[in-house]
């Protein structure tokens, strides 16, 4: 009986669905997190009776044929890169991107990673770094005697030092865009890596055409919507239950056949 395996594929798919939903809910308050969605496709079909086959000696043909599907599989789990709401934090090193683009981060290995999480801080040398202490690219150095720091919408970093009323430019933040953002690979810690599917990064100045703007003193909240996640969870659970019902029905039917008295 195909039904048993078909239903098992359905249960496996719904299990994956629940895993993706639970990760979204767990990251509801993660800065810059983009929710994911599992998308399913039907599995292969078995041709029991081909359409167009002759159904009688009078030359009539089978109009539709019998194709029996063998279940479901996960088509893809993709990130929905919808803008998250900017949340005011008051921290002067928090920067949110309003629009397209990713901050570039230098990993300890020398590779460049990309992130939407702009909750930066300074390290012991006055350099702008992420929560994990990875440097932001291009490097921004804030002098020790800086009284105030301002980051403009276009990413220009200016400081005001004691005694000099004129703000001084100390660096320019850049962001990168990709052809296919959904093709970026998540490596945890809010970081993403470039892949063959995403295409190469195009760095640029925030606010230029095709690039988002920066907002100082804000972080981008995750774009997870609790209500839709919970309803998705309920739907996934019910779908799982229905598949288990198919398994028990197939099992019952086999037991009926096995117990026919002769």
């Amino acid at each position: 009986m195909r039904a048993l395996r078909t239903a098992a594929s359905g249960m496996a798919a719904q299990q994956l669905n629940v895993e993706v939903i639970s990760n979204n809910i767990a990251n509801m308050n993660t800065v810059g997190f983009k929710r994911q969605r599992a998308e399913f496709q039907d599995l292969i079909y078995q041709n029991v009776e081909r359409m167009g086959a002759q159904s009688s000696s009078q030359g009539t043909v089978v109009p539709t044929g019998i194709q029996v599907g063998l279940g479901v599989k996960a088509g893809s789990v993709y990130r929905i890169t919808e803008q998250g709401t900017p949340a005011q934090t008051g921290n002067r090193y928090d920067v949110a991107i309003d629009g397209r683009g990713y901050f570039q981060i230098t990993l300890p290995s020398g590779e460049t990673a990309y992130t939407r999480a702009g909750n930066f801080s300074l390290n012991g040398e006055g350099q702008l770094v992420t929560d994990d202490g990875y440097a932001v690219e291009p490097a921004i150095q804030i002098p020790q005697d800086a009284v105030d720091v301002s980051i403009s919408k276009s990413g220009q970093v200016q400081v005001i030092t004691d005694g000099t009323p004129e703000p001084q430019v100390v660096g320019q933040l850049e962001i990168a865009t990709f052809f296919n953002e959904a093709g970026l690979e998540s490596i945890g810690d809010n970081l993403l890596l470039e892949t063959a599917a995403s295409g190469t990064a195009t760095p640029g100045v925030p606010g230029d055409p095709g690039f988002g703007q920066l907002l100082q003193g804000f972080t981008e909240s995750s774009n997870v919507d609790a209500v839709s996640e919970i309803s998705a969870l309920i739907i996934a659970q019910r779908a799982y239950e229905m598949n288990s019902k198919v398994i028990s029905t197939a099992d019952e039917m086999m037991s009926v056949s096995a117990n026919v008295k002769n």
């Binding site: 594929s9 719904q14 496709q41 063998l70 479901v72 598949n243």
Partner: peptide, 9 residues
């Protein structure tokens, strides 16, 4: 069974 497995496809 295939219909139910694909209820969310």
């Amino acid at each position: 069974a295939n219909n139910i497995a694909n209820a969310e496809t």
